[in-house]
Amino acid sequence: MHFADRLNAAVKRVGTPICVGIDPRPEDLPPEFLDKFPGDRPGVAESLRVFGDGVVDVVAPLVPIVKFQAAFYEAYGPEGFAALHATAQYAQGKGLLVLIDGKRNDIGSTADAYARAYLGKVPVGESFEPSWNADGLTVNPYLGSDGITPFVKVAAREGKGLYALVRTSNASAGEFQDLIADGKAIYQHVAQRLAQWAEPYRGASGYSLLGAVVGATYPDQLAELRATLPGIPFLVPGYGTQGGSSKDVAPAFDTDGLGAIINNSRGLTYAYSRPAARAKYGAEWQAAIEGAVHEMIADLAENTNAGKLRTPTAE
């Protein structure tokens, strides 16, 4: 099934477009959580796996998709990678779509190898087997068509999705993305080319398998890009801890409340660290995460078209 169609179906099923970002940092885990594991690298990696699984247990009934930031797992080497793979598989087993945030990019056969690693299959003996088997992957488009086409081909073949960086949420994004070339900002050129790449790969929902990463911290550009990129699914980081609000992300949606997933990482998975959450939930860190997800669901429903997704079965 086409990635965008699967994602839209999942969003409609749960009635919210929230993407929970799982970015585990040992120093930010719940109090005394690390004490339960050996104090070596394998032990820390195991704590990341157990924490990630615990987050998945909470959010699986509530949201359609989770996003794993690969860097926080890569930091702990092979054991960290194993933890990422295990929790990603666990999340899929719970019915969630899984997006790996690795911002991969290269050209030719190397790009094809990245694509097959995360989205496709690799030759093993006389058969082909999936390695990561993610549902989607973030990619960097700044090597041009040579760096995107191999990913798109694999994603199309395997029913997977891609999100290319267009207008990112970080403070220094404008250092390059806002530079003017031939009368337009660089991010506008990227968006224009992205639309061309994405057009042949639309699903029954009208949305392409190739989407755009557009930050909530630049709401004017977000609104502009939504208007100029119909049929391009958005991954919107920057809500919550980075300062983006529900009103900032509102332009990302189409009239039916589809077309975008809103990522929240620290604001959800570390909700237990907020004083108000500690006062309300005490040491019940999973309850704090669940409460934060419900708060975000309500916020998006009240202030964006995502409210149209809230059917009686999704309440």
Rank of each mutant, 00 (worst) to 15 (best):
M1R: 12
M1L: 08
F3I: 06
L7G: 00
V11M: 05
K12D: 04
V14S: 03
P17L: 06
P24K: 01
E27T: 07
L29V: 06
F37V: 03
A45H: 05
E46D: 11
R49L: 13
D53L: 09
D53V: 09
V58C: 06
L62T: 04
L62E: 09
V63Q: 01
V66T: 07
V66A: 04
K67W: 03
F68I: 12
F68P: 00
F72L: 13
E74D: 14
E74W: 12
A75N: 06
A75W: 04
Y76A: 05
G77T: 11
G80T: 07
H85G: 10
A88M: 14
A88K: 01
A88T: 12
A91L: 05
G93D: 10
L96F: 06
A111T: 10
D112F: 12
A113K: 04
L119H: 03
V122H: 12
P123Y: 07
G125S: 11
E126V: 12
N133R: 06
N140W: 09
Y142F: 15
L143C: 13
L143V: 14
S145N: 12
I148W: 02
P150N: 08
R157K: 15
E158M: 10
L162Q: 05
A164I: 07
A164F: 04
V166T: 08
S172K: 15
S172Y: 14
G174M: 11
E175V: 13
E175R: 14
F176M: 14
Q177L: 15
A181Y: 15
G183S: 11
Y187F: 15
A195W: 07
Q196S: 13
A198I: 04
E199L: 12
E199N: 12
G203V: 00
S208G: 08
L210R: 02
A212Q: 04
V213C: 05
G215W: 01
A216C: 13
Y218D: 06
D220C: 01
D220S: 08
L225E: 00
R226L: 06
P233K: 09
V236W: 02
G238I: 02
G238Q: 07
Y239N: 02
Y239W: 13
T241L: 15
G243Y: 11
G243I: 11
G244T: 03
G244C: 03
K247G: 08
D248H: 08
V249P: 00
A250L: 11
T255M: 11
D256I: 04
A260R: 00
N263P: 09
N264H: 05
N264Y: 05
N264S: 15
G267H: 01
T269N: 03
T269D: 10
A271I: 03
A277R: 11
K280F: 05
Y281R: 07
G282C: 11
A283R: 14
E290D: 13
G291R: 03
V293R: 00
D299A: 13
A301P: 06
E302F: 08
E302Q: 15
E302Y: 09
E302P: 04
N303E: 15
N303A: 14
N303H: 15
A306W: 01
R310P: 03
T311V: 10
T313N: 14
A314G: 08
E315R: 15
